[in-house]
């Protein structure tokens, strides 16, 4: 690990001040950042430890929703009684990720900011436009099993690896950010992560000095909530394809179908047209295929990850079929 100076932030202003410097980073749980620092993928000159600045509460919002502190741990969130009863898709998504030891340390803000597990990104001997702009992309024509089939660019085909954000996307959660200037802004989680385009180093919309303070969930949405994760091992593996689904049926037809997809792109994938195509339709193979056609309209494989396209279609079929049965 490269040397760095370490400061324990007491209040959020400390953290904002330190991290306004582009060579500085905030550290919370540290499970991803320290891993990357050991690999010298991340080489911050300064670390601001934000673990003692608060923002770790999980509490009801004025409109009956739930505010989840950025510094609450993944475990505290998944086991919270209201998350378990009112937002099971979120609890399930969190519990499907990593291990208990990691979830005990990982924070919600850090989880949103975690970096891709692309092998070229995490190996400093390899080219990677995300880690070293202009060095090329090793994954295109390389080892690309985990990589994107939606929304990739000719500069980067990495995927966002998280599960929690996929459920948050289905729930249409909001990300609250303290800006460097001391004000606040709110970004829908669906717009928080970026596509790689020609700025693949940019994972999300956070600017230097900005810190996530909370994530808010809408008032309980009900419905049948499912998080289905397809992976190579039955535990402790990243998603090849995952689907967060919130489904309701009325008179045998879909009346709600909020879906978000993990493992397919540089961000949790959400396409409003899928819900539009499902609502009012019966749960038949034809309906599921139509939804999959929309999801995969622009899908493109890169050799090793070609399988993700039919896998996403089949997983969508399975989830919709299961959800329709449960919701009926």
């Amino acid at each position: 690990m490269r040397p760095f100076s370490y400061t324990k932030a007491r209040v959020i202003e400390d953290a904002r001040q330190i991290t306004a410097d582009e060579s500085a980073m905030a550290i919370a749980g540290g499970t991803n950042l320290l891993d990357l620092m050991k690999l010298q993928v991340e080489t911050p000159h300064k670390l601001a430890d934000i673990n003692r600045i608060g923002f770790d509460e999980i509490k009801k919002t004025a409109d009956g929703g739930l505010s989840i502190g950025a510094l609450a741990t993944n475990t505290a969130t998944a086991v919270h009684p209201r998350v378990r009863s009112d937002y099971p898709v979120l609890a399930r998504a969190i519990l499907s990720g990593a291990t208990q030891q990691l979830r005990n340390k990982a924070t919600n803000g850090g989880n949103l900011c975690q970096r891709t597990r692309c092998f070229y990104f995490t190996n400093i001997d390899q080219p990677c436009n995300k880690r070293e702009p202009g060095s090329g992309c090793g994954a295109i024509d390389g080892i690309a099993k985990l990589h994107a089939v939606l929304g990739a660019s000719d500069q980067c085909i990495a995927t966002y690896p998280g599960d929690m954000a996929v459920a948050l996307s289905a729930l249409d959660a909001q990300v609250h950010i303290a800006t460097a200037g001391g004000s606040e802004r709110t970004v829908p989680v669906r717009d928080f992560h970026c596509l790689p385009g020609d700025t693949p180093w940019r994972d999300n919309v956070l600017e230097d000095g900005e810190i996530i303070t909370a994530i808010t969930l809408p008032a309980p949405v009900g419905g049948t909530q499912i998080y289905r994760k397809v992976r190579e091992r039955s535990s402790y593996a990243f998603a090849l394809v995952s689907i967060a689904a919130i489904v309701e049926m009325k008179d045998g037809l879909f009346s709600r179908a909020d879906l978000a997809f993990g493992g397919l792109a540089h961000k949790p994938w959400h396409d409003l047209r899928i819900a539009e195509a499902l609502i009012g339709q019966p749960p038949t193979a034809q309906t599921f295929d139509k939804a999959a056609d929309i999801l995969l309209e622009i899908a493109r494989g890169y050799g090793e990850n070609d399988f993700k396209i039919p896998l996403a279609r089949r997983t969508l079929h399975a989830v919709l079929e299961h959800a329709a049965e449960e919701a009926a």
Partner: peptide, 15 residues
């Protein structure tokens, strides 16, 4: 009381 990976945390974070 909580189990964690001691390799992925800095000692100075545990005052």
């Amino acid at each position: 009381g909580i189990r964690i990976n001691s390799c992925l945390t800095l000692a100075v974070m545990h005052d």
